[in-house]
Amino acid sequence: MEVRTIKVFTTVDNINLHTQVVDMSMTYGQQFGPTYLDGADVTKIKPHNSHEGKTFYVLPNDDTLRVEAFEYYHTTDPSFLGRYMSALNHTKKWKYPQVNGLTSIKWADNNCYLATALLTLQQIELKFNPPALQDAYYRARAGEAANFCALILAYCNKTVGELGDVRETMSYLFQHANLDSCKRVLNVVCKTCGQQQTTLKGVEAVMYMGTLSYEQFKKGVQIPCTCGKQATKYLVQQESPFVMMSAPPAQYELKHGTFTCASEYTGNYQCGHYKHITSKETLYCIDGALLTKSSEYKGPITDVFYKENSYTTTIK
């Protein structure tokens, strides 16, 4: 009895394709271990004539594949690729409408935090270190965002349907971005203890939790000093293409032309909904596939993004 075979390709990165001759009487799992086709788990399936010449994702289970996976995804987590594939199996079914010149995501599976993050990423200057993220990001900007969303979920250790947080998501993504040249110098002034300067680099240099107003941050924000008295913390120097200011959701007025974009969060910790506000020729609110415009805006804002380049204080 002759062994019926077909020729397929296996890959971990969709760049390096490895030619395989597979036995049609055995499952993919018996031949390769966990195997995925377009995100779908085909591990328990036997090869079919229609699979001839198709590319299958496999887990990096030998040295060659491990090197290829690390170079593309910059992670050695053995569960990463499987999590990416199972997320992709959902995100490829989502709709990605162009809204006001940006790629958004039609609401499904509690994905409003991903839509808000995706919209924000198209408006701030950011370059990702893992080629996987950078490639998928370019495709997302062009309207094909399924891979990018699935990668975000995998890097953030999230599953489809789980509630997510924009600030946490951005923080994970910033860790995989090139923020080497970003720098922030802060000064804390206390009447009792004097003053202390701190220099922050990388992710810490672009994120701040405690106030939404970048102007206020430049002037000074009140913080408790270690001595128990009130101290003032203010920005001395900022070198970065953008800054992200966050605070627990509270009524906040966004003035046209003073910011790049913002995240609105309605609801409580267990259950809520994100919308995205962007400042173009007027203010726009993007909620999944829905767009509304207004000249002014007041609502429960939790993150505001500002364009920056270089700032030095005039406070002496």
Rank of each mutant, 00 (worst) to 15 (best):
I6P: 07
K7R: 11
N14I: 06
N16R: 09
V21A: 12
M24P: 14
F32M: 11
D38V: 12
D38M: 10
D41G: 09
V42K: 07
T43E: 12
K46D: 11
H51V: 06
G53K: 13
A69L: 11
Y72D: 07
T75Q: 09
P78Y: 09
P78I: 08
S79D: 14
R83T: 06
A87T: 04
L88C: 04
N89G: 13
K92N: 09
K93S: 10
P97H: 12
N100W: 04
G101V: 02
K106T: 15
W107F: 03
A108T: 08
Y113S: 01
L118D: 04
L119K: 03
T120K: 03
T120A: 14
L121R: 00
Q122A: 02
L126Q: 01
L126D: 05
F128Y: 08
P131E: 01
Q134F: 06
Y138Q: 14
R139E: 12
R139S: 13
A140H: 04
R141F: 08
G143S: 04
F148L: 11
F148Q: 01
I152F: 00
I152H: 03
L153Y: 12
L153C: 07
A154V: 05
A154N: 05
C156N: 06
V160F: 01
E162T: 05
R167W: 03
T169Q: 05
A177M: 07
D180S: 11
C182W: 09
T192F: 10
C193W: 01
Q196T: 14
Q197S: 12
T198G: 04
K201L: 13
K201P: 02
V203E: 06
V206A: 01
V206G: 03
L212Q: 00
Q216S: 09
Q216T: 08
Q216K: 12
G220W: 02
V221Y: 08
I223A: 12
P224E: 13
C227Q: 02
C227A: 00
K229L: 11
A231F: 01
T232M: 14
V236N: 01
Q238D: 02
P241H: 07
P241D: 09
M245G: 00
H256W: 15
F259Y: 01
T260V: 14
C261M: 06
A262G: 01
N268R: 12
C271V: 10
G272R: 01
G272E: 01
G272H: 00
G272C: 00
Y274V: 01
Y274C: 06
T278V: 13
T282C: 13
L283D: 00
Y284R: 01
Y284V: 13
L290Y: 15
L290G: 12
E296N: 07
P300K: 09
P300D: 09
P300F: 15
I301F: 02
D303H: 00
F305A: 00
F305I: 14
K307D: 11
E308K: 07
Y311W: 11
T314G: 15
K316F: 13
